[in-house]
Design a binder for these strands. Structure first.
Lengths: 340, 340
DNA sequence: TGTTAGCACTCCTAAACCTCGAGTGCTAAA
DNA sequence: TTTAGCACTCGAGGTTTAGGAGTGCTAACA
């Protein structure tokens, strides 16, 4: 469909535009080493490329700028694998080398590394709790009316929920309750918790006192309450460095959408395995139409647990970013799998 | 020092500028109801006010704008208590009315309410953990090499720390350890934890096995590791609405300082009891020299536990913001004290 | 037939230039 | 002491201009 020469020209335009953010003219292209034909020829090719929708002019007599279609073609066909430098690799390695047994910290650090290395905004979706299983429940009473239930999952994730307790409920009863719950629920996938809590456990508890029953009701409600998935972002201000975001309105709209963590989480969650690139209008959210979002998933035992992503201008360093995300998501998976 | 008339003029200038963000001219002032003298007179007074440093010109023939000294005088002497509307009060009430026993949620909601009602950025410093006492410790082993210690404080705050365990350590031993710790540490102020852990508890544990010793070393390290204080911010994008922040550079520098949570936490922590107003250059951080920061502390049992703050342009609605912060911090204190 | 030099043309950018009006300070009269 | 009057200042915003980067087209060339 595209001639070799057209592809060559397109490649130069996009490569160049990614670095300069300026429209590229025929003369500039001709000066490139790999190009061996004259500006006039290039102008002809560019006219064709424009007709085909791969590049655009910003005004009648301007140089060319990649269109979204152009970026798409570039991402699909023109990317050569980017070799990260030793220095870069060692920075990443450092993130994982320390003896940390806390996944949250590793994720936080990863987010930091990603945004620092790219000058884009990094977003990491924490491990999906509902794919883990329950390890243990603990209940600690805080006063004669309140207690906190603490859940620990097989991935070492700790979560706590507060609930009310009838003041007549004994401490020993609470203990009994905990024992029953642990016996019945240990090893149960979090996603099946609801069913279990309403099913066999409820039945089992019926023979106990009234207090028991009301406590259980509160506890159940607390346990089933969905916690929003954790979203780790870093380098939000990096967007301000991009020349395409020199407009307060754009920043405003992008920032306001980034504040809606549930929306962002949904987008990251709905990605398939591996790397995915969304360019401009391909993004679900209108507010992200001037951006590209590149996502990579990390896994536990082959199952997708979370997502690592970078958000930047459409003019992203696709090749480099993809390599980085690849490395980081694999390392995250690896650490995750070693631990659990 | 200032004549009544000068004060009148100053008040009008600041009140007006707070709402319009535009320099105020003598004619505009003369039109105000409470003003009964001519523009020419006002011009004379303004010249004096400028000499005294309370107002400034943006250029030779412009209207006047309050100086930081002017704001300071305004805040110290010209503020009349702002009466919040019934509607506003009921919005605040709603934040506290629901049966939530989770302090974190109340704080989050408060931050949201504050930023929504003011269009400024709200910052709340969570309760200081080191002022609470330890309620209970639990240890849950995750694998044969890792375990998680869970601390619950008297304020219901739950925290967890991961640590490594020698693989030869028995589950029953861990239980024994927990029992000893609970017996010795329940009720101990978190701030004294270190001392206790190194002192009597260490001694007590010496008679046990080698494994015990190493486990304890890891655990101790994990427990003493300082967690950063939680900072809740909301309405970060509100700053973009302020006309004084129409400059990407300013936004950039302000946002980057907001991302440094530890710095912000320090500033909020170091405030004294009650309301404090920092205007422009009075702020510690250079990046905040175009802002005003108003802070109010909330307490538990008379002791300062955390801080509620609003960050906006120097041209803040001081009166209203102060009232709001007063109401919110008292309500936070009240809820906090009822619970614990 | 594909490539290239030449050239007229377009349109943006940045600077220079106006114009208008809001606001001032000063002076002199009330 | 207050105020009206007036000349003066300066910025905001619009218009003009010059320069240059880049294009498309045509015609010559390999």
């Amino acid at each position: 469909m595209l001639t070799d020469r057209q592809i060559q020209v397109l490649q130069v335009i996009i490569d160049e535009f990614i670095h300069t953010a300026q429209p590229i003219g025929s003369r500039a292209i001709a000066k490139k080493e790999q190009i061996s034909f004259s500006p006039a020829t290039i102008r002809n090719e560019m006219a064709d490329l424009e007709d085909l929708g791969f590049i655009e002019k910003t005004h009648t007599s301007s140089g060319r700028v990649p269109s979204e279609r152009g970026y798409r073609f570039y991402v699909d066909h023109l990317l050569s694998p980017f070799l990260l430098s030793n220095q870069e690799m060692s920075v990443i390695a450092q993130t994982f080398e320390k003896e940390i047994i806390e996944f949250e910290k590793v994720v936080q650090k990863s987010a930091r590394v990603l945004s620092d290395m790219t000058n884009y905004t990094s977003i990491i979706l924490g491990p999906e709790v509902f794919k883990t299983t329950l390890k243990q429940i603990q209940i600690i009473s805080l006063s004669d009316q309140a207690a906190v239930a603490i859940l620990v999952t097989n991935t070492g994730h700790v979560e706590h929920r507060y609930f009310t307790v009838p003041s007549t409920m004994q401490a020993s009863d609470l203990e009994k309750l905990v024992n029953i719950l642990n016996k019945r629920l240990a090893g149960v996938p979090i996603i099946q918790l609801q069913e279990k809590l309403y099913g066999e456990v409820a039945q089992l508890l019926q023979k106990y006192s009234n207090d028991f029953e009301t406590t259980y009701t509160y506890l159940k409600a607390a346990l089933l309450e969905k916690k929003p998935v954790k979203l780790y972002m870093d380098g939000k201000t990096n967007i301000l460095l991009q020349p395409e975001f020199n407009d307060i309105e754009k920043i405003q709209s992008l920032y306001s959408v980034m504040e809606k963590e549930d929306k962002m989480a949904n987008i990251l969650r709905s990605t398939s395995k591996g790397i995915k690139v969304s360019i401009g209008q391909e993004n679900e959210l209108d507010e992200m139409q001037d951006c590209s979002l590149i996502t990579a998933s990390y896994t536990l035992g082959g199952e997708q647990m979370g997502t690592v992503a970078l958000l930047g201008p459409k003019r992203m360093e696709y090749s480099r970013v993809i390599s980085l995300l690849n490395v980081l998501s694999t390392r995250l998976s690896k650490t995750f799998n070693t631990w659990y």
